[in-house]
Design a protein around this nucleic acid. Structure first.
Length: 617
DNA sequence: GCGGATCAC
DNA sequence: TATGGTGATCCGC
């Protein structure tokens, strides 16, 4: 088998730095890449074809010039330019001997990767077109012909009318309005998007019950079985599926079809909006598709890597092969593997539901007007700690490591993380330990504070022999007894861990270090206790009784959702005994059991793990 | 193992 | 006047 394409493999004479320098930055010695950086990441998305990017970027430049954000971008651009130049210098030093050695190694690697190629599966990537905007148009048909966007402060997405002006997702609202003064900006309405997403996923399930819903508006499917079952062409199947989604939900979706997730994802962008593109399950077809594909179109190649590759005259994925020996000398093994797999058009053929992936961290962060006052920062930290606790309860987990993130007014970021003496999952602990880290950074002026929990412990899978004990504790730790803002530390860390509750705000981190030592082997018992006293316990037991017949249900998700949602303080509770369902927004009885039943029903219509997390298109 | 960076959405 | 939040991964030290 011919594994590699023959072709020009070495152009040592033409590898001069090719940093595209069209515009000169006034006042700097940068090449004109700052304009491009300021344009943002979604410039190459659909709907931008007729846009005069030079004019748009100039408006952005003028609108943001002098701001803290601008200065930060300028610094980063300068650093990157230096890094790129350094790589180009390194490239010049690579000897022919090194290249020869690398070439041998590359061929071996390619053969190694080639044997992993699987052309038996039909993978589809489905991507809703301007999803939030599309959903809003259903409620506001008069907006269809006008440029509008969805978001607040920063735009999440915008309709195609707005894109004609150069408006894009992730663009600051005030900048977007400079580019398009008549732009209408709607607030986010997540319950609506979730409901619509559920309706779409329901249809997707008919084609692949194990499809992977990445976000509200994006999913992977394996339709191999379905195509065989109905004995239909893959393009017809996907076309039917898209039409059904449009008919039943009013939302247009685009799709990519190919032998693996990587090419399917890229393909879904080609005929966007409301279109599809197929890459045959054929090695030559895949190779040809990748060959002329700009590297930036590949998921995982961002602005920085693209800059580096372009400087080495790697523009399209085919160039990866031509320059592979050089790349081998300049990049890490991980990157080389990634790039070669891109060139070969290889990718995963495994599609499984998102909730079968293990979560590695959970965090909360908040941006606000810059503050220097420690008391105010404590207040922010407290709120963030409480939010994080809610997420922990929703997901039914604790963590052994806590991270603090700060963003200075210069937009420079600082992160600190510490192992905890025991897995923690309460706001009180998040605040306590977070503050210890924060205080070490004082004095400081920040515009963002965040907390993140890692080294997670899943509290859903209960160990054996614990059921009776939990049944006993149940009355003591029901939701009603303890509001989320005042969880008793002793309830979560009973007897054995009492000593650590004595930490005060003004203690030094050194004491934390000391506490961490010698407390590892107690872990399993502590986790058992966490599980036992977890607020989820009571509801889980009830739930298990209710669902004796249905053992296929994912308990962890439904239980945790049911646990936290009714607790939410801003879920629109009124004295009339009616609340807005946090998922679908409909009015539901405020009675706990009735609400929980409704929420469960709402959630069961589609696997939503990240129920109300903000995402950009 | 930590902190900084990059990337996706 | 003014640029987000969540999660994953990689790299250098």
């Amino acid at each position: 088998m011919v594994v590699s394409e023959p072709g020009p493999k070495r152009e040592t004479t033409s590898s001069e730095p090719q940093i595209s320098s069209k515009v000169s930055e006034p006042g700097t010695d940068n090449p004109g890449t700052l304009h491009r950086r300021l344009l943002g990441p979604s410039i190459q998305k659909s709907g931008q074809d007729g846009v005069d990017q030079a004019t748009v970027s100039e408006i952005i430049y003028q609108a943001t010039q002098g701001s803290k954000y601008f200065e930060h971008q300028k610094r980063k651009e300068k650093d990157l330019t230096k890094k790129v130049e350094s790589i180009v210098q390194q490239a010049k030093k690579v000897s022919n001997q090194d290249l020869d050695a690398a070439e041998v190694r590359i061929e071996a690697l390619i053969q190694q990767y080639e044997v992993t190629r699987d052309l038996t599966q039909i993978i589809v990537h489905v991507d809703c077109d301007a999803f939030y905007a599309s959903v809003e148009e259903l409620d506001h048909p008069e907006l269809k012909s006008k440029p509008f966007a969805v978001g607040k402060g920063v735009l999440c997405t915008c309709n195609y009318e707005a894109r004609k002006f150069g408006v894009r997702s992730a663009m600051a609202e005030f900048v977007a309005k400079k580019i398009c003064p008549e732009l209408v900006v709607l607030r986010l309405n997540f319950p609506k998007y979730i409901e619509k997403s559920n309706a779409i996923r329901k249809i997707l399930s008919e084609y692949d019950p194990n499809h992977c819903a990445m976000t509200l508006d994006e999913a992977y499917l394996n339709i191999t079985e379905y195509c065989a079952k109905v004995n239909k062409d893959r393009e017809e199947v996907v076309s039917d599926m898209r039409r059904r989604i449009l008919e039943t939900t009013g939302v247009t979706v685009s799709a990519g079809i190919g032998p693996n997730s990587r090419v399917a994802k890229i393909a879904s962008n080609i005929n966007k909006p409301n279109g599809q593109f197929v890459i045959a399950n054929d090695r030559e077809a895949v190779m040809e598709f990748m060959c002329n594909l700009p590297v930036r179109k590949v998921t995982g190649v961002g602005y920085v890597l693209e800059r580096q590759l372009l400087a080495l005259n790697v523009n399209v994925c085919g160039d990866i092969y031509h320059k592979s020996a050089l790349l081998y000398q300049l990049f890490t093994d991980t990157t080389i593997t990634f790039l070669l797999n891109c060139y070969l058009g290889l990718g995963s053929t495994e599609v499984k539901p998102i909730d079968q992936y293990e979560r590695k961290s959970v965090g909360c962060e908040r941006t606000f007007r810059a503050i220097s006052d420690a008391a105010q920062m404590k207040q922010k930290l407290q709120g963030i700690a409480e939010d994080l606790e809610k997420d922990c309860r929703r997901l039914n987990l604790a963590g052994r490591k806590l991270g603090l993130k700060l963003k200075k007014t210069t937009f420079e970021q600082i992160s600190r993380q510490r192992p905890m003496p025991k897995p923690i999952n309460t706001a009180a602990d998040f605040y306590r330990y977070g503050l210890l880290m924060l205080e070490k950074e004082l004095p400081i002026t920040v515009r963002l504070i965040g907390l993140r929990l890692t080294d997670l412990v899943d509290l859903s899978h209960e160990g054996p022999m614990k059921t009776f004990l939990k049944g006993q504790r149940r009355q003591n730790y029901t939701l009603d007894d303890e509001p989320s803002t005042s969880i008793n530390f002793h309830a979560v860390f009973p007897e054995s861990f009492d000593g650590s509750t004595d930490i005060h705000d003004d203690k030094e981190m050194g004491e934390l270090d000391m506490m961490i030592q010698g407390s590892q082997e107690e872990d399993s018992s502590v986790i058992d206790e966490l599980r036992s006293s977890s607020k989820a316990t009571a509801a889980r037991d009830v739930k298990n009784a209710e669902e004796l017949q249905d053992s296929t249900v994912d308990h962890s998700m439904q239980i945790s959702e049911r646990e936290t949602l009714p607790l939410s303080t801003d879920s629109g509770e009124t004295s009339s005994g009616v609340v807005a369902c946090p998922i679908c927004g409909n009015q539901v009885s405020a009675d706990d059991q009735a609400l929980n039943r409704h929420v469960d029903w709402c959630l069961s219509r589609g696997a939503i793990r990240e129920a109300v997390k903000e995402t950009f298109e």
